[in-house]
Design a protein around this nucleic acid. Sequence first.
DNA 1: GTATCCAAGTGAGTTACCTCA
DNA 2: TTTGAGGTAACTCACTTGGAT
Length: 354
Amino acid sequence: MELELSLGDSPTPVKATVAPTPVPAPTCTSEGEGLQLVLGVRASRRDEQDDQTTCTQSSEEAMEGEEDETRPRGEAPVESLSFPLFVSSAETGSMNSEVCTRGFDVNTRPSDGCAAAVRPSSPSSMLEVSTRQQATDQEAADDEENSGGGARKKLRLSKEQSSFLEDSFKEHSTLTPKQKSDLAERLNLRPRQVEVWFQNRRARTKLKQTEVDCEHLKRCCERLTLENRRLRREVAELRALRTTPYPPLYGLHHHLPAVATAGLAAAGGGGTVFRACPSCDHNSKVAAAATCYSPHVVTSVGAAPASDVTATVASPATGSSPPASATLFSRRPHFGSFAAVVPPVLRRQPSATS
DNA sequence: GTATCCAAGTGAGTTACCTCA
DNA sequence: TTTGAGGTAACTCACTTGGAT
C-alpha cells in the first residue's frame, strides 16, 4: 500500500509506505498496538537539508509529535533499535508526551522510554548511558503509569550538552530539521528539546541585545543632554551679544558660507528669519543656526578677534579634546559640524581674499 | 521567603503548499 | 489550463508557567 505525500518544497511527491510490518525505525503502535504506520515524508520546507531528510514517521507523530521528524529512513537511533517493541510514550502524542515528562528524568530521549534515571555525563558516554537506560525503561514506564504522573521534572542540560549547543548556536542561530535531529541524536535529547533550547537561546540573545541597545541609547541621551546644555549656554551668549555693537569682523564674514553670513546678518540685524540649515525643514534664527551647525564659528566671530577663530575651530568647546557630541554626531550627518563644512582656508585665514 | 535562571507550554502571526470550484 | 480562495502544516516569536537553585 502506498500513499503519495508531498510536504514542503519537495519537487516531487514522496512515496510513503504504510507498512503493516514492524520497522526498526522510531515507530510506535499507539493505542492500537497492532498496525504500524510509517509514512515517508519530506520533513520540512527548509531547503538546505531536504534532499537528505526523507524520514520515517509514525502517523501519530505526523499529526502531533515532532519527535524524530527528520530521522532518515533506516537510520534509527540505537535506543530504538534496542527497543523495537517499546512504545515511546512521548512519541505517541501530546498527551503521552506530557505524561512522559512528568516524574522522570527528562534529560533522556523519550525513545529511551522516557524513564531512564541515568543522566548522561558527557556526549561520549551517551550511547552507553542509553543502553543502560534500556534496562530501566520498562520499569520506569510502569512506575509512571502507576504513579499517575507527578510533578514535572526540570530538565538541566549537562555542561557538555550546553556547550555543544552553544557551539552550534554560534554557527547558526536557527536550525534546519536535519540539524535539529542530528543535534538531538548526538546529545541524546529529543528534537523538541533542541528546538526549545534554540528558541530560548534566541530569546536570550535578543534580550541581551536589547539591554545593550538600551545602554547605548542612555549614553547617547546623556551626551545629547550635555550638548544641549552647552548649546543653550552659547545661545544665551549670542543673545547677549545682540545687545552690543558688533566688533570688526576682520573680513571674516566675507569668507563664511552664505548661511553663516546670513546668520551674522540676522544676529546683527535684529531678528531676520532665514533658513539656517539645509537639512532642517524649518526656518530659524541665529540661535538655531548655532544648533544645526557648529556654534564655534558663529560664537567666535562676534566675541573674539579673527586670530581666535582658528583656535576655536580647531579646538572646539572648552578643551583640546573633541566635544562629547563629536563621535555621536559623526554618525549623524544631520548634525554635521559646521567646522567640517567650512573650507580650511576660510577657517584659518580670515583675510585670505584681502 | 524571594529572586533569578531556564526548560517548556501556549497562542498568534507568517509562509508555503495543496485542494477545489 | 489557469486562477483565486480557503485550508493546513510547519515554523518562529512573544509571553507565560513552573521547577530548580
